[in-house]
Structure formats: C-alpha cells, structure tokens
Simulated assay, not measured.
Amino acid sequence: MTSLRLRPEGPADAGPVRRVLAAAFARPDVAVPPEVRLVDELRGSDAWVPEAAMVAEHGGEVVGYALLSRVRVRTGGGFFPALALGPVAVAPHRQRTGHGTAVVQAALDAATELGERIVVVLGDPAFYRRFGFEAADRLGLTSPWSGLGEPWQALVLPPTTSDEPPPPRGEVIFPPPWSKV
C-alpha cells in the first residue's frame, strides 16, 4: 500500500501543483481558475513562505496542496505578521480520503515551527473547525471578507515562549494577488 508523503513544495512541483489546483477548482466558464493564478502570482513574491507551501504526494504523484502566504494585521501600533491559508486543493480522484486534512495539518505544523501566531482562512467552517479555526470576528480580525460571516475564520497558534503577548486585533491586509480572487 502506498502511503501519503507530506512535504514543502519544491521547484519541480509548480506544474503538478497547477494541475491539482486546476482540476480541484475547475469551472466550465473559466479556462484558468483564479486559484491557479493566485498561486502563480504569490510564488516568488514577498508573500511567499516556501516552508509553508505544502504538497501531498501519493505514489509519487502530487495529489494535494495547501498554501500559507504572508499577510499583515494592521493594529493601532503598526503591523503584525500573520498567514493566510489557501488555496487548499486535492485532486478529484483523491478527494474524501483524508489528504486535504493531512496537507492542511502539515501546513499548520510548519507555521507553528516557524513561530507564526495567526492563520486566517476563508472557507467551510465545518472543515476548518477540526483544526481549531473559529470566526475571525471573535478574535477582533477584520478583512474584505468579514461580511461573509462564519467562513471568515482565524486560528491562533501556540506561542513559542511563555511571555509572548496575545495576538493582535485589527484589519488583515492581503497582498495584491488576493484582490483578484
């Protein structure tokens, strides 16, 4: 039985990742889904966090993907670094097998290892709650997607030291490629 391998995206993975994203987000009215363009534009930008772009590989084939990219929380005292989760995709023939859960958990583990404190996501609350996400407005975080309610979510990651201040409250600022999604 072939096992699932989770690892950071490498340079040779760009094509396979594009194929997974295109298949997972395929729509008959769009030649290239916006999620594919988003990853293409984020890759190589200052929002790119290479250690937190995770692929799921099954039998040597890239079948899943979860991207964490840099965002900032604007507070009264300046900016605080945070991460945005998305897009998350699993190849259609591997959906509902646990690969999505596994690749998201690998990305969140990478964020924790990097010492990150906040991850935001816009997605299905039933899926993301299993990782500890909650409504972002309860944490005092706003964004252009705040009006969507429950799908706008955030996760506070464990602090790296016991004297770390609580995570900030404020507006989450996304890099320009996100405005096209």
Rank of each mutant, 00 (worst) to 15 (best):
A136W: 02
P125D: 11
G86K: 03
G64W: 02
L68G: 04
P151F: 06
A84L: 02
D124Y: 05
F131H: 03
G100L: 11
P158M: 03
V119G: 01
G147T: 11
H99S: 07
G115Q: 06
P144W: 15
H93D: 11
R138E: 14
T101P: 00
Q153K: 03
T97M: 15
V104D: 12
T101L: 13
A111D: 02
T101G: 06
S69R: 12
L148V: 12
A66V: 03
Q153I: 09
A89D: 12
Y128P: 06
V88E: 12
F133W: 05
L108N: 06
L157F: 05
L67I: 07
V63Y: 01
Q153E: 08
Q95N: 13
T161M: 15
G115V: 08
H99D: 08
T112W: 05
Y128L: 04
E116N: 09
G100Q: 06
G115K: 08
S69H: 04
L157M: 06
T161Q: 13
G78L: 04
D163C: 10
G76I: 00
T75C: 05
G140E: 06
A82S: 06
V121M: 10
G59F: 15
G64K: 05
D163K: 08
L155C: 01
V71I: 13
A66H: 01
Y128H: 10
T142V: 10
R94K: 15
F133C: 12
A126V: 15
A102V: 12
L139F: 08
V62H: 08
A126E: 15
A89L: 09
G115P: 10
S162A: 14
L114C: 00
V119K: 01
A89F: 10
E134S: 12
V120A: 09
G86P: 00
A126D: 15
L139S: 04
A111M: 04
L108G: 08
D137P: 08
P158E: 11
R138F: 11
G123P: 00
V88F: 02
A66G: 09
G100W: 04
P165Q: 11
S143K: 03
F133N: 07
A135G: 11
R129F: 01
E116M: 11
A135L: 11
L83R: 01
V119E: 01
R74F: 00
A154R: 02
P125N: 09
V103G: 13
P159T: 15
S146A: 13
E164H: 05
T112F: 12
P125T: 12
L122E: 10
A136R: 03
G78A: 07
P166C: 08
A102P: 07
P81C: 04
W152Y: 08
R138P: 06
L83Q: 02
